[in-house]
Structure formats: structure tokens, C-alpha cells
Design a protein around this nucleic acid. Structure first.
Lengths: 160, 160
DNA sequence: TATGAAAGACATCATGT
DNA sequence: ACATGATGTCTTTCATA
């Protein structure tokens, strides 16, 4: 395991909120010398605790409407088909810009996060692109009314 | 709407990959003067296209196992109860550190993303914390076998 | 809006406590 | 873990086109 002390955690928390905080600003807020902050961040990156820095995109680029879709295929007699078919679907979905995220679920399930201008537009996309796939035994749409925790995950995921 | 040209898009794409790229590095890669890049980024922030800068946490802090859970409540006779109850559940879940994200779905549904060390541990958490809630008519767990698109959403969501 | 040049701020590193 | 100082790099600003 990895062990982080309070200072590490405080640095991570501040950088999560605003990764452009300078070392001097961090040093001031946390009442530590700049050299210490610099050293800690260097270590956090080396240890892989900080994976990378990124930007979150804002309202202008975010889809107004988001749904989760669960897809489940039939289980074929030839098991080998299953994995190949699941791979095919996930890869196809992954290439589409309005598909924000895709995960395999179990052996024959897929969960996808899909964004669009309206819920109706997304429904149409699901009808045209997903429900037309062969050998599905279930397609269920979970429309997101509001995001309570992890709100800006959409701005994180959206393609530019 | 907002309109972005190729340069804007190129800047956003690079910053999404690595928000620590300096203006000079961006300028070099995109064959533009530093002042231009500086100006564009300033505008992108002003327009809200760039919402904020953040860090993605790495393996040491990421849960090894992740599931999505869909929760659906009964629809009570008194409609007002419904919203209050859904709010109560979402807020309770949001406070827990292993609950990575929570969204309301429709009027009586909740979708939550939950992380843990093993799938069994998460199952136990679902049994103890969610299935014990009153007036639920459905609790379904979708274990994530692998994430195909949006892989580092977990490192983005995880609490420090 | 784009650019070039200059000024100031910052990260980084070495050294020592 | 912290302090200090030296160095080079980067950001930021401003005047100009």
C-alpha cells in the first residue's frame, strides 16, 4: 500500500480543486515552505499518486442531457463468440463522440454513458444504433435527471 | 452556441492530455507565437469552455473494483414523499467516500458508482447500506469487468 | 485578433541545517 | 523536513499592426 500524511492529502485536495495553483500559493495556504511543497508534489508524481494533470470542459461543450444505457447480449452456444461480440460492440460505441464512457459488465453486459442535446435525441440514437444490434436480450436506458455527486464528470469525459 | 476553430480545439486536446504543458511548449507544437496561445487560453477560460484544471489520481488510490448500482424506490401515494426520500438517499450516498458518483434517474431512480477493494466487499456494502433501505422495489448491481472508454474517470472521481 | 519584445514571477536544483 | 540562493524558464503585459 501507499501511505499519505495530512500534508500530502491537503496538497492533493487543493490540486483537485485547482491544478494551476502555484507552489508558492500552496505553500502559503498550507503554511509550509515552498521547497517542501515542491518536494512532496515531486514524490506524489513519482509514486503515481498523481497520475496526470488535465482540464475539465465547461457548459458550452457539455451535452445538455445524459443517460446510462445497459446492454446485455444473448449467451451463444459457442462461448468464444461472446467475448468477440462484446468487444465489437464496445469498440464501436467507443468511437462515437456522444458516447462518453463504456464499460464491460459481467461477461455479456455493457454499460455506456451517452450524451446528447435532448433526451429524445439520445433515445433516437439508442434506437438507431443500439437496439438494432443483433442478439441482444436487454437494452435499458437510465436517464439522468441530475447528478448529485461527481457533477463535473461530464466535462471531464466530453470530447473536444 | 459557441464556436471554436482548429487552433482552439488543438489547444484543448493537448491540455486534456496534459494540462501542465507550458504555453511555450504548446506554442512550439502548434507553430504559433506564445502570445497567441496565451490569448486563446485566456479566452477559452473566460468563455467557460475550460471550466477548471485538475489532477487525476493514479493506481495507488484507485479502488480495484467498481460497480454501478441502480436503485428504484416504490412510488408512494403522497408524491411529495418521493422527492424527499430520493434526496435523502442521494445525499446519504454522496457522503460516503467509496461512492464515486451519484445521479438521480427519472423520478424514482438513482444510479450510483461504487468503488471498493473487491467485488465481494462492494456487494457487502450494497447489502448493508442500500438493500436495507425501506421502500425499494429494485436494486440491481452492474459489476464493471473493464472500462473501455473513459478509463481514468475513476482516478478523476476518487476521493483523497 | 495576432504578434514580438520586455518585465516580472515561478519552478527547479544545489547546498547546507 | 526545512531554509536559502542562484539559474533558467515561463507567464503576463503592453505596444503595435
Amino acid at each position: 500500500m501507499i501511505q499519505l500524511d495530512d500534508l500530502d492529502r491537503a496538497i492533493l485536495k487543493l490540486l483537485k480543486q485547482d491544478a494551476r495553483l502555484t507552489i508558492s500559493e500552496l505553500a502559503e495556504r498550507l503554511n509550509r515552505p515552498e521547497s517542501t511543497i515542491h518536494f512532496r508534489i515531486k514524490k506524489l508524481i513519482e509514486k503515481g499518486v498523481i497520475d496526470r494533470y488535465t482540464i475539465i470542459l465547461g457548459e458550452p461543450l457539455k451535452p445538455k442531457s445524459v443517460v446510462a444505457v445497459y446492454i446485455e447480449t444473448e449467451i451463444p452456444v459457442i462461448e468464444d463468440f461472446l467475448e468477440k461480440y462484446i468487444n465489437h460492440i464496445t469498440k464501436t460505441l467507443s468511437m462515437l463522440p456522444n458516447v462518453l464512457a463504456v464499460a464491460k459488465s459481467g461477461r455479456n453486459g455493457i454499460m455506456a454513458l451517452i450524451g446528447g442535446e435532448t433526451e429524445e435525441q439520445i433515445e433516437k440514437f439508442v434506437d438507431d444504433t443500439i437496439r438494432t444490434l443483433p442478439s441482444l436480450r436487454r437494452v435499458e436506458v437510465f436517464p439522468f435527471t441530475s447528478i448529485v455527486k461527481g457533477k463535473d464528470v461530464i466535462g471531464f469525459l466530453v470530447d473536444v
